[in-house]
Design a protein around this nucleic acid. Structure first.
Lengths: 197, 197
DNA sequence: GCGCAATGTAAGCGGCGCTTACACGAGGAG
DNA sequence: CTCCTCGTGTAAGCGCCGCTTACATTGCGC
């Protein structure tokens, strides 16, 4: 992307890397361009040579996250013996990203990509994930109509996404942990996402 | 709560009201204590006589939202002819709040209530909503064990919540609207939430 | 070798959350 | 009726933030 080593040595990549670390530790709100610049040993204005504003830097971090997610999807499909277990593998990959890198996941799904003027690269990366999901649902039932595939993809995705949001929002702290264990919970959610109406 | 009319005339209530308006128009991040103070014609330090910090004010707004939500739940149950349609009415109430007051909904579910030190009032208000949901699920199937009730409540809630999050995040803008209409979408999501594994 | 464009810097503007020290004024105690 | 207390509001300021402008430097193509 960026040329190569100049004064700093690819400040652009350094900013993305440092921002990703901060996002993981303190969430998107904890990212400050001034603080990142100080950490990387450059002036507070230097980051603006590579990113139009704070939002653009966070978009770049989010785009990298979507690329990783889509790659994990494809890996799950490649390793699956059949279409049904492929869908299950993608669900696991989604949950793995969400609970493995919660800060990144929050960043990826926190903002309204379309209404805010997100970069085309980010939009493309985000859509690729959806297409992979839809393809897996279609492959699991070749006789389903496009509308049914869309409905199943959306509702299944909603179930996974909602569970993640509720967990990360701390909504099930004292609520659920009593009657259900953690692994049972994950399996129940995946079953709900992949089965039913 | 607050005494009554002093210099300003219940600044506390004015701040909550103004903050709620701002949250609805520009999201939680758009709330600035300085701007609210200027709007209400008081000094920038005045709000700190009523709220320890910015977070405390937003918590108060969120708590009011949870009270409204729980009231809507109880209304739905009271108006329903049987337990099954009561659950359906609660789902509709949840979606109605989310799409009717998206900014408030975002505020209510954006932050981690437990990890961040939320006020006891907010925690209580948030838990009341969950209890109402669980009660409806239990009433719909009196033979279900507590674990099954917990599982159904969680997965159904997850489906609704995930759908809302994805819609509000603009994730289904160019994606879904082609094959499915809006009302079909809502019904499909409610069916998914209330039925299946 | 030289000029140009990419990269980085210094300084500053306005806004923010929050704190401290001080001013006012309603309402109970005497 | 007076006074004094305490709840409320103010003025000023600290440190941080995003972002901009004008200027310095440096590597690359000619």
């Amino acid at each position: 992307m960026s040329r190569s080593a100049y004064h700093h040595g690819d400040l652009r990549a350094g900013l993305i890397e440092a921002a990703a670390t901060t996002v993981e530790q303190g969430g998107p709100d904890a990212v400050s361009l001034r603080a990142l610049a100080q950490t990387l040993g450059v002036s507070t204005a230097a980051p603006y040579r590579h990113f139009a504003d704070r939002r653009a830097l966070l978009d770049a971090v989010a785009a990298r996250g979507f690329e990783d997610l889509t790659a994990a999807y494809h890996r799950a499909v490649a390793e699956a013996p059949d279409a049904a277990s492929a869908a299950r593998g993608m669900a696991r990959a989604y949950l793995a990203l969400a609970f493995g890198k919660p800060g990144l996941f929050r960043l990826m799904f926190a903002s309204d990509l379309v209404n805010d003027g997100a970069s085309p690269a980010l939009l493309t990366a985000a859509r690729a994930g959806w297409e992979a999901l839809r393809g897996a649902v279609a492959a699991a039932d070749p006789h389903a109509s496009p509308a049914v595939v869309a409905r199943r993809t959306l509702t299944g995705w909603s179930t996974l996404h909602g569970f993640i949001s509720l967990v990360q929002g701390g909504r099930l702290k004292g609520f659920m942990t009593e009657p259900l264990g953690e692994s049972e919970l994950l399996e129940a959610v995946i079953d709900k996402a992949l089965g039913g109406p």
